[in-house]
């Protein structure tokens, strides 16, 4: 088939990648807009307010207006910042957010590229965000920013461990790092959440911490650190961080869906090879809504409690879980 489509100078594979990248960018921006709106609307409703109401029907265009406002804003660079790093930080945060989209299998035929090590690829790329936050905190020349950045690094490093340990449990069962392989292993409704609900909970808690979401949003704890590492950023810099945050949430929830909720699997649809992406998105957004729900309910944990929770609860539980999985598999 590839010979038919081959246009001579552009190999099909390259075309596919370019198309996938464009789709990825569309998803990134689309997700940021949808999430921004949902977050504000739901925050309002949780608090018995209507949320954004003025721009468009029920404020549906609010995010577009905000985007224009943020783009049009003056870029303020405070005195004595490290100018290069200060400008680089939002970009370093945002750019890696696009890459994982290429390997996420939205539907059997909707996947940019299937790597054997897709899972590792995502984890590796996403980890760059910590660096961006550290750079942002350091270059702003603001003590609040720096405190936020330091918290972020400690938190992300600590929570990577339970996350990886629970991942290992899944990998032990599937025997592959390929995301497609993991989804296919759960076909027919045999989702891993039914076999290892504890692992799901641990993984979800860890993703909350990895994406700096409440109740683990210490890097930007606004009542203590004003806005944490984002304190000094305005305009485009701020909006890039903002979009990156939502994209990382999307990626984290996608991973959860792929690992535990059976990816695209669901009741069959016509043209299922493409349209089953609907199930995928439905599951991802259900998780994202839960994240929003959690954020607008709970207070923030303290820093030592955050680490205690990781080392005293998540790590032992995930270790035991890994052991049990291994033993069960061997039997």
């Amino acid at each position: 088939m590839s010979t038919v489509m081959n246009t001579g100078f552009l190999p099909l594979e390259l075309l596919r990648i370019i198309f996938a990248l464009i789709c990825a960018i569309v998803i990134v921006f689309g997700n940021a807009v949808v999430m921004g709106y949902l977050e504000r609307k739901l925050a309002g409703r949780f608090q018995r307010r209507p949320g954004p109401m003025e721009v468009g029907w029920h404020g549906i265009l609010q995010l577009a207006v905000d985007g224009v406002k943020l783009v049009g804003k003056q870029l303020i660079i405070p005195k004595q910042t490290d100018r290069v790093l200060y400008r680089l930080a939002p970009i370093i945060s945002f750019a890696p957010a696009i890459m994982p989209m290429v390997v996420i299998p939205f539907a059997p035929k909707l996947q940019g590229r299937d790597f054997d090590i897709g899972l590792i690829f995502i984890l590796a790329v996403v980890a760059i965000n910590v660096l961006a936050i550290l750079i942002a905190g350091w270059s702003s020349n603001n003590k609040y920013s720096l405190l936020g950045a330091m918290r972020s690094v400690a938190q992300n490093v600590a929570y990577e461990i339970p996350m990886l340990l629970t991942l290992l449990s899944v990998i032990l069962v599937t025997g592959t790092f390929s995301l497609r392989g993991i989804v296919e292993a759960q076909s027919g409704g045999a989702w891993f959440i039914f076999f290892m609900p504890v692992a799901f909970l641990i993984f979800f808690a860890a993703t909350l911490a990895e994406t700096n979401r409440a109740p683990f949003d210490l890097p930007e704890a606004e009542s203590e650190l004003t806005a944490g590492f984002m304190t000094e950023f305005s305009g485009m810099g701020f909006s890039l961080f903002f979009m990156a945050e939502y994209t990382y949430m999307f990626i984290a929830c996608s991973l959860t869906v792929i690992l535990f909720l059976g990816g695209w699997s669901g009741p069959p649809l016509p043209y299922g090879e493409y349209t089953s992406a609907l199930w995928f998105f439905a599951k991802v957004y259900a998780l994202l809504l839960t994240m929003i729900w959690i954020r607008w309910t709970f207070p923030r944990v303290r820093f030592d409690q955050l680490l205690n929770f990781c080392w005293k609860y998540l790590v032992p539980f995930s270790l035991v879980h890994l052991l049990v999985t291994a033993v069960v598999l061997k039997l």
Binding site: A43, F46, Q47, R48, R49, A214, P215, D217, A221, S223, W296, T297, F298, P299, R300
Partner: peptide, 15 residues
């Protein structure tokens, strides 16, 4: 509660 990072209870007390 707002100082501790929960945004919602303050709206209920305001009601």
């Amino acid at each position: 509660v707002l100082d501790l990072g929960a945004f919602t209870p303050i709206m209920y007390t305001f009601e």
